[in-house]
Every structure is written in structure tokens, then in C-alpha cells.
Design a protein around this nucleic acid. Structure first.
Lengths: 357, 357
DNA sequence: GAACTGAATGAGAACGTGCTCAATCCCAAG
DNA sequence: CTTGGGATTGAGCACGTTCTCATTCAGTTC
């Protein structure tokens, strides 16, 4: 075999293929096994051999082939991240935390975007599993269509659901206390004196993209409804228009602001909803908190450049990703441990006053 | 061998290892070669065999092992992205474009953050090369320390530099026209009547992180200086304080606004600089454009929620990543093609007036 | 029926690593 | 000098795929 290998090598363009452990062994004048031991730090190797091998490796600029290693170890030391969209600042921070957590456990991260589409999610999942990633971070695209996810879990794929989750899937879950956070924030607004609090609901038609239910948005909206109900305040249907995306929310809120019984406070379910709400308030030339109170989810950079800065519910996005990586590392180490749900706390940051004028 | 393999299989925990092409062949009653041909769509296979193989593959839920495939093809169909920080909205959009471009060419993306640190960059580069990625997107951390990058290029690693670049590295480059964009924007402000235009320069001490020069910031600053020089306007040193990060810029600008000869316009070199500038203006209770004009780089979501919305230079971040993926795909297909530099156009969006009060 | 042709098939090498097993080496104790 | 034993070493299998090569098979022609 060594003859065959050697013959093969010299016929190749020089420098094209990186040096293998075989080349290092030949350069050092030892066997492959000894070179592997010296480089891998296992077994016993004489000091003389170790030195020769390390010198040869340095000379040949040897770089271990992780693909071949994965082949034999059965592990790729790679985690997959299947999220809606990295360009979304929230997911970007989740990914960053996930990446840091992965790296701390010697894993790399393969990134795939789903655009909230179950079809793309299925494709992405297949790609990740073909690549034999050791674990997958997942922000499920839809509460309803998840046969492909169930199949992956059934096959023993380590999965952690983040931000939102499908209850039927028996996986680790890392989320924030969406329901509580929303309920408490809205209660706070009620305590400050508001009764006419409107909240665009996640939903409605979209020509480009089918609608997919998401626990996160539903939990938050339930929190809003319960806070109102607990205070004995009825929520008229027009205070809960269905909308999606910044522009859709803007239009829906504009409609609301121009109609009868204008609300005195607006609650945003996520960053894009908040942007749409502010757009609408700006378009109507309303100032906050004088004309209308604005509060809601996610403490992004821009909420503090507004005058006055907005009152927001801050999500620990980075920690979400970090915990997800830790959860996967723990599950990979012990696949038999029962699935756990980790709920991270949000933090309410009251900046502009919530009191009605 | 088939005996050995079979023996091995039955001793394993059932269901633990995914079905290999060997299992499919056995199930279908054909040889590995025939199963591989049927699944891989090459060579010639009888209709009968193909049907049997596909049925067996479906029954066993066969998923090709990309690791083993890479082993023999010598290609991983994976690209690496070595960027400063995904959590930075600009890089997040670049990554998204890169991811889409990669996917369109059947590549996956491994993500690594460098935090602008040459040391982390070197580690990340090593990891990516050990994983035998077919190409690497790189936003170099430093203009100065790049021996590790040179070594990678010398070894034949396909690399594309994005956003900023090290001229000495002979790689493909995808950037925007930073110098021109800055010069034109500043010229526009001058034409509108400004002479006292200040621009925090990228630099200064930082206890946490060493300073690394970046072409992007330097090109933009040169554009500013040249625009001023062309108009015959002298730039006093205090109009170009060195600063870094949102907070640092905020403090530097506050200092400027409270001192003598307050500038009438502030030019921001990137998103974090713009945030710091707006913070300072807010802290001093200055309104734009009445009290001070604010303009600069990057059209992020928040620039349009301010009242009035800011005038900005929009970068095609998504396209930057997309082009980078295309460049890598082209280079992998033909490694001998000469390195090309692609310069994408920025677009100037004038929203709030630039005219001095 | 023999020879020919092209399709279909199976055996097996190769990729680079980790790891097992047996063989060899060295050194000290007897 | 022999023996024992631990340290060191090398040969070789295995991972799952792609792909080459030789062989077999079916069908056609003379």
C-alpha cells in the first residue's frame, strides 16, 4: 500500500493536496501509527520520536483532516443552526451566543436559514443530517407542519428548540418567559392608568409567504389578553388587528389611530412590530408618551436613540443561544438524559413613562 | 468484508447508526456498487434494480453520509465565513447573502466570529482549514497582522476578502466604494452650506481590545478629508477625535458639542458611530437638522424611525455576501483565474435636510 | 449455434484517520 | 547470559462513499 500511495502522490500537482499524517510519518522516519500517537497525544511515544514527528509536521505544515477524523470517530464536532433568518438582529444575537457556546465545547457551527418556511426547514434539516452534525439548534418554522422534525428526533438526532417550540417534540427547549413578560408589562401599563391598550396580533394574509403559527407570538398575545381580562378590561376586536411585518403593522396601527376610540397605548409583540408601531405614530405625528404610550418586545439598539427612549422587554438573545449550545453538548454527552426545558428571564426596562397624558 | 461488516452491525445498539449504502444494497439484494449507482444517478442501472434500491432506501430512511463522500471526492461542499461578529447587523446581512449564495451553489456555511482579533482569526482559520472547507469568506481583522492569512492563500486555500481587504493578499475581493461614497456625501454637505463638519476617526485606546486598522474605516475617513480639502476647508484636529464603539463616539462627540466652534454637521463612519452621534445630539438636546446635521454610513432599520429620518449611505450588505459566495464558487471551479476585485455601489439616501439652519 | 455488442453488475481500491493487537526493543534484575 | 516486563513501535482493520475494471448477461446478427 505504501508504494501505491507514494506513486499516487508524485503524480499529483505538487502542493495541491495538503500533507497527510502519512507524509509526516515518512518525513519523520516512523510509522503512521507512531506519528498519529505523537500528534494525537495518546499512547506512548519516545521523546525522540515525538520530536521528530513534531518537527516533520511543522516542516510540512501538517493540518489534521477533520473529515477523515469524523469518518472514524463517528462525530463531526459540528452543530447545526436552523433559524428563520440571521439577518434578523434577534436571531443574529442568538447565533452569536450559540457560536460562542459551541466553540467553548469544541464544536463548529453550520448555519442554515429557513425564512419561517417549513419546506426550507425540511431541506435544511436534511442537509444538516447528511452532514452528520452532532446536534441541531432549531427555531421551528411552524407549530403544525413538523413531521420531518419528529422523524429527525425519532432517528436519535440531538435537537434543541429555541425561542419557540413544538410541545409534541420531545427535545430540550430553551425559551424565555414570553407569557409572563407580556402579562406583566401590560399589567404595568394598566396600573399606570391605561385601559385602551391595543396590540397587533401576529397573523393575516400575505401573498408571498404562507402563515405559520409561532408559540412565541401566541404566548405573548395570551399574556396581553390575560392581563386585560384580569383587570376586567374588555378588548374590542379592532384593538387586536392581525398583521405581519413592519409595513403591515404600520398600516394596521395607522388604521387604528385614525379610527374611533383611539387607543392610549400600543403594545408590540416583537421588534418588527415595534418598528411598525413607531412608524405609525410618527406618521400621525404623535409624540410618546404625551400622545400615546409605546412599549413592547425586544431591546434593540434603536430603542435608545428615540426621544424619549422606549420602555421595552429585553430578551436574553445571546444567552438563549449560549444555553442551547450547552444543552446540546450535555445531550450529546449523555443521550439518555430526560429532555429539559430552560426558561430564561426577560427584563422589563421602563424608560419613557407609561402613564397616559 | 461483508461478513465482518454484518457482524459489526448486529452488535451495535439497534437504530443507533444510520443506514449506510451497504444496508440499502443488502435490503435491495444488490451489490454496493449498484446501489451507489442507483442512488447517485450515474453509470447504468436496470429499471428493476433502481426500483428495488430506491424502495430499500426509502424503507431504511437512508441518508447519504456527506462526510464519507467528502472523504473520497476531496470536496466538502462547505464554505467558511470568518467575520468580526454576526451579532453586528451589517455582518448579519452579509452572512445572509453569503448563505443564500452558497446554497444556490450547493454549499453549506460554517460560521466563525473573530471579534476583530487577529488571534481569534488565526484560530478560526485553522479550524476552517482543518475542516477542509472549499472556500473562505474573510473580513480581515487587521491590516498589519496577516501572516496566517498569507500562509493559507499560499497553500492554495480559496479565499475572498469582503468589506475590507489586505492589498498584499492575492485573493478575490468584494467591497463597496467606501472612499467615493464618503467623499460624495461630505461634498453634498459642503454644497448644502456646511464648513464645520466633524467626523470621529476610527482609533484610540481601548483597555479590552487592541486596536486594528481597517481599510473600510480608513477609506471612508480619507473620503471625508479629501472632500474637505477639495473644497478648501481646513479640518481642525478637534473635529476628528479618535474614538471607538457607540459609547466612545458618544463621549467624543459630546466633548465636541460642548466645546468652542461647535460643528454644524456630524459625519458617522459606520452604524455604531451613527448611534453614538445621535446619542450625543440627544444628550445635548439638539434637533436635526435644525441644530445640527447628521449623516453617515449604513442604512439600518433605526435610521427611519427617527424624526426626521437620517440621511445615510446605504451599503449593499446582502449583495456583498452574495457576490462573495459567487466569487468563491467561480474560483473553486477554476482556481487559475486571476484574482478579481468587485466594487459594489453604495446609494446615497437623503432624508433629513443637510442644510445648516 | 457462434460471435459480437452493449448494458448491467460486482469486486475492490482509495481517501486519512483512530485504534487494536502483536511484535520488538531496552533495561534492570537474577 | 538469561529472563522478565514495561515502554515503544508497526501492521492492519474500519469508517462509507466514489469510481475503475473486469465479468456476466441479454439480445442481435451472421
Amino acid at each position: 500500500m505504501s508504494r501505491a500511495r507514494y506513486t499516487h502522490r508524485v503524480t499529483m500537482a505538487s502542493g495541491a493536496a495538503p500533507a497527510s499524517i502519512f507524509d509526516v510519518a515518512r518525513e519523520a522516519g516512523v510509522s503512521r501509527a507512531t506519528a498519529a500517537r505523537a500528534l494525537g497525544g495518546y499512547g506512548s511515544v519516545s521523546e525522540r520520536s515525538r520530536a521528530k514527528v513534531l518537527a516533520a509536521a511543522a516542516k510540512l505544515d501538517y493540518s489534521i483532516n477533520a473529515v477523515a477524523r469524523s469518518m472514524v470517530t463517528g462525530r463531526t464536532m459540528t452543530l447545526g443552526a436552523l433559524v428563520a433568518d440571521v439577518a434578523n438582529p434577534f436571531f443574529a444575537r442568538v447565533i452569536r451566543g450559540f457560536s460562542d457556546g459551541a466553540r467553548a465545547n469544541d464544536y463548529d457551527v453550520i448555519l442554515v436559514n429557513t425564512d419561517e418556511s417549513p419546506a426550507k426547514e425540511e431541506r435544511g434539516l436534511r442537509v444538516l443530517m447528511e452532514n452528520r452534525v452532532d446536534g441541531i439548534l432549531l427555531t421551528p418554522a411552524s407549530l403544525d407542519k413538523h413531521e420531518h422534525l419528529q422523524a429527525a428526533v425519532d432517528r436519535g438526532q440531538a435537537v434543541v428548540q429555541v425561542d419557540r417550540y413544538i410541545p409534541e417534540l420531545e427535545t430540550d427547549v430553551v425559551v424565555v418567559d414570553n407569557y409572563d413578560a407580556a402579562r406583566r408589562a401590560v399589567s404595568r401599563a394598566i396600573a399606570a392608568g391605561h385601559t385602551r391598550i391595543a396590540t397587533p396580533e401576529h397573523g393575516g394574509a400575505d401573498s408571498k409567504q404562507e402563515f405559520c403559527r409561532i408559540t412565541t407570538m401566541e404566548d405573548r398575545f395570551r399574556g396581553y389578553l390575560d392581563a386585560m381580562a384580569n383587570a376586567g378590561i374588555e378588548v374590542p376586536d379592532r384593538y387586536r388587528p392581525k398583521a405581519r411585518h413592519r409595513e403591515g403593522v404600520r398600516d394596521a396601527v395607522l388604521d387604528l389611530l385614525r379610527g374611533p376610540d383611539r387607543p392610549t397605548a400600543l403594545f408590540g409583540l416583537d421588534d418588527s412590530f415595534m418598528l411598525g408601531i413607531v412608524d405609525a405614530a410618527n406618521a400621525e405625528n404623535l409624540a410618546w408618551p404625551a400622545d400615546i404610550a409605546i412599549f413592547g418586545f425586544d431591546d434593540t439598539d434603536w430603542t435608545t436613540v428615540l426621544r424619549p427612549p422606549l420602555s421595552v422587554i429585553a430578551q436574553p438573545a445571546y444567552e438563549l443561544g449560549l444555553c442551547a449550545a450547552e444543552a446540546l453538548a450535555a445531550r450529546i454527552a449523555d443521550p439518555s438524559r430526560p429532555p429539559a426545558m430552560t426558561t430564561l428571564a426577560t427584563s422589563w426596562t421602563e424608560r419613557s413613562s407609561l402613564a397616559p397624558a
